[in-house]
């Protein structure tokens, strides 16, 4: 019985629901749409409950870190403080704001969003610019003919995409467009087709219960 609930039942459910959604794709009847809408509601509800699990997991992880005084447990305190500050301010903002939404301009939550979240997140993203430069410097080497071609293509595209490149030589943009539209696109299409086929194959393996690694593998 235990194996039924652990193995057979999930596979059976995966098969039934997977097939329903697959068949639905070919059926234009209103019933097909109703089924789909119903499924989507379930997905949203399940995701809602999973969010609670996620938050509990986060708090539990950091609580254990603090309890066991693991290295860097001070950061766990920071996590707790940040989490509850944002939560409390959000709740208060929601209850005192005029629309009942904590997102309204002028609330504490909105202030924290604009003045903490926005700059912090933008900073994270902006680090990308620095990392691109250092990664290019460190790893882009003409080690073999393929790498050399990649290198030349990268330089041409980078120069072709900015006004300075145009100012240096008027044909950079044309070359860059050609690389993007012809070479890049055909390569991407090849990968995309391979990925598409792999995805269909994997979907079939999961539907028919052949692939069970996601349930911890084995039989």
């Amino acid at each position: 019985m235990a194996t039924f609930f652990r193995k057979q039942l999930p596979i059976l459910l995966a098969f039934v629901f997977g097939m329903t959604m697959l068949i639905r794709y070919y059926v234009p009847h209103p019933i097909s749409e109703q089924i789909y809408n119903e499924f989507i509601k379930w997905v949203i509800i399940i995701a809602g409950f999973a969010a609670i699990l996620g938050i509990l997991s986060l708090l539990h992880y950091h609580w254990n870190k603090i309890k066991r005084r693991q290295p860097g447990y001070g950061f766990s305190f920071v996590t707790y403080i940040a989490f509850f500050t944002m939560l409390v301010v959000g709740l208060i903002s929601g209850s005192i704001s005029e629309t009942g939404s904590p997102l309204e301009a002028g609330t504490g939550f909105h202030w924290m969003y604009i003045n903490l979240m926005v700059p912090m997140q933008s900073t994270m993203f902006a680090i990308l610019g620095f990392f691109v430069a250092s990664a290019a410097f460190r790893a882009f080497r003409a080690r073999n003919p393929e790498a050399t071609l990649l290198l030349i293509a990268a330089i041409l595209v980078m120069l072709g995409r900015v006004p300075l490149g145009e100012a240096i030589w008027g044909s950079f943009p044309t070359i860059s467009d050609w690389i993007l539209n012809v070479l890049n696109m055909s390569g991407q299409r090849g990968i995309l087709l391979g990925v598409g086929l792999s995805q269909i194959a994997m979907a079939l393996r999961i539907l028919f219960g052949i692939e069970r690694t996601y349930m911890g593998g084995g039989d």
Binding site: I46, A47, A50, L53, G54, Y214, G216, G217, G218
Partner: peptide, 21 residues
């Protein structure tokens, strides 16, 4: 570390099962 709570739940099960196996 997970970004999606549903994925986290599945990952937990997967790792646990793998250890058992």
């Amino acid at each position: 570390p997970c970004r999606d709570p549903v994925v986290m739940t599945v990952n937990q099960e997967t790792v646990k099962e793998a250890y058992t196996e």
